[in-house]
Write a protein that binds this DNA or RNA. Sequence first.
DNA 1: AGTGAGCGG
Length: 87
Amino acid sequence: MVNIFIANLDWSITSDDIKSTFSSFGEVKYAHVVYERETKRSKGFAYVEMADPDEAINAIKALNGMEINGRIVDVKIASEKKNRIKK
DNA sequence: AGTGAGCGG
């Protein structure tokens, strides 16, 4: 399982769009666009969890710097929840 | 409006 971080997404991009895009490169276990909890508006970035590291890397290589809806997205490996404490 | 969460556990 590899966590991928995608930033600079257009406001209109949805989790489903993310999932569909990454699914082209491999099995997407989970896709999730981050929204501002308070405003409900998109924060413009998202996360994708892929099953295979190779596919994840492949997806990142292919999608990083790619223009989507006029935005050059930034795709990179996400660290372990930003070292967030897990329980 | 603009760069690291949620899910499941």
